[in-house]
Each structure stands twice: as structure tokens, then as C-alpha cells.
Computed example of a mutant assay.
Amino acid sequence: MKAIIVSDSHGLTDELAQIAARHRHEADMFIHCGDSELAAEAEEIAPFAVVRGNCDWAAFPNERMVEAAGIRFLITHGHLYGVKTSLSRLSDRAEEAGADVICFGHSHLAGVEKMGGRLFINPGSIALPRGRTEKTYAVLSIDGGRAHVQFYDVSGRPIAEMERTVSLERT
């Protein structure tokens, strides 16, 4: 199973279309963690399971639960869970929802963390990154209980030092 995860595109359309086209033959799922600032009918957002961010005005849901290959995904922007200061509220929500993988944005800080037996992924921002100069998105590959997360810059180059592989087993 392979998921392409983006967030915080803040009105960009060409970049979303390029990412979707680049990965269209390999991805099982496209996720947008909010702040697209696009209309729900926008062609560029069509391939993505989208949630509403604090800068969105379209009627996207605040969160989504999606299941793929037996993995439960919680997708949210993060602003309703205070992710800029702590992941604790989001972790509580993930536990309540029975999520295995949590995809979120809001902080514009790319990263991956395993916490409480769950995998948290923030793809960063393809528009306004923080903490790094690269405008980033993430590709999550899951095979045999192992998750591999590779971050890419918006042009499709992998960022080697951000690559991470973890077990999805709960400890």
C-alpha cells in the first residue's frame, strides 16, 4: 500500500497536479491534510482525500477516517488539536478512533514519529515550509507490518536524511 501525503499548499495548483501526476501509477491513496485554500470542485484537489484546515473556506470535513490494506488512517489538519505545541490531544483522538497512522499538517514542519504504537506523519508544506528550506511532501509505503516514509521536495527529489522505516506493531 502506498499513500502520497501533502499539506499546506495554500492555493498552489500546479504543484498539486504535478505531485499527483508523478505518483499516479504507484499510489493507492492521495491525502491532503488541509489548508489547500481551493474550492472543493478544483480539479487539482480531485485525486486527494482532503480535510479542512484553518485557512480553508470550502466545506471539507475536519477529519477523515480511511482504511486501506487493513490500516486505519486518521486524517486531520491539526489546528483543532493544538499540534503546534504538542501531539498529546491528537494522540488521544487517534486512540479513541483506533487509528494506526495519523496524517496531519498545520505546523508546516515535516516529520514522522511513532508514539503510543501509532505512526504520526506531518508532510510539511509544499508552499511555506518551516524548519527546512525544502518544500516537502511524504510518501508512505506499508508492506508486511513495516512502514517506510520518504520525504520529497516539491520537484520530486528524495530527501535522504528524512527517510524512516518503522514497525507498525503496537508495543
Rank of each mutant, 00 (worst) to 15 (best):
A17R: 15
Q18W: 11
Q18M: 14
Q18G: 08
I19Q: 08
I19T: 08
A20D: 04
A20C: 14
A21I: 03
R22H: 13
H23Q: 14
H23W: 15
R24L: 09
R24V: 07
H25K: 13
E26P: 02
A27K: 04
A27W: 03
D28T: 01
F30V: 14
I31T: 06
I31A: 12
I31K: 06
H32Y: 03
C33R: 01
C33D: 08
C33N: 11
G34F: 09
D35L: 05
D35K: 00
S36Q: 00
E37I: 03
L38P: 01
L38Q: 07
A40N: 00
A42E: 11
E43S: 14
E43F: 09
A46E: 06
A46T: 03
P47G: 12
P47D: 10
P47S: 12
P47M: 12
A49P: 10
A49S: 15
V50T: 15
V51G: 03
R52M: 10
R52Q: 12
G53D: 07
N54S: 01
D56R: 01
W57P: 02
W57L: 14
W57I: 10
A58G: 11
A58Q: 02
A59K: 06
F60D: 00
F60K: 05
P61G: 06
E63Y: 12
E63D: 13
E63C: 09
R64W: 04
M65T: 14
M65Y: 08
V66A: 06
V66G: 07
V66R: 03
A68K: 13
A68M: 08
A68L: 15
A69C: 14
A69Q: 02
G70L: 02
G70E: 00
I71L: 15
I71T: 05
I71C: 08
R72C: 02
R72S: 12
F73Y: 12
T76W: 01
H77E: 08
H77R: 03
G78I: 06
H79K: 06
H79E: 06
H79N: 13
L80T: 05
Y81M: 12
V83F: 00
V83A: 10
V83M: 05
T85D: 11
S86P: 11
S86R: 10
S86G: 12
S86F: 09
L87N: 12
L87F: 05
S88H: 12
S88Q: 15
S88W: 12
S88F: 14
S88V: 09
R89G: 09
R89S: 13
R89W: 11
L90N: 02
L90D: 07
L90P: 10
L90M: 03
L90I: 01
S91Y: 12
D92H: 13
R93Y: 10
R93G: 10
A94N: 13
A94T: 02
A94M: 06
E95S: 13
E95T: 11
E96R: 15
A97S: 15
G98C: 01
A99Q: 14
A99I: 08
A99Y: 04
D100C: 11
D100H: 11
D100Q: 05
D100L: 04
V101E: 05
I102K: 03
I102D: 09
I102P: 08
C103S: 07
C103N: 06
F104M: 13
H106Q: 05
H106Y: 07
L109I: 07
A110G: 14
G111P: 05
E113Y: 07
K114H: 05
M115P: 01
M115N: 11
G116V: 09
G116R: 09
G116A: 11
R118A: 08
L119M: 13
F120P: 13
I121V: 14
P123T: 07
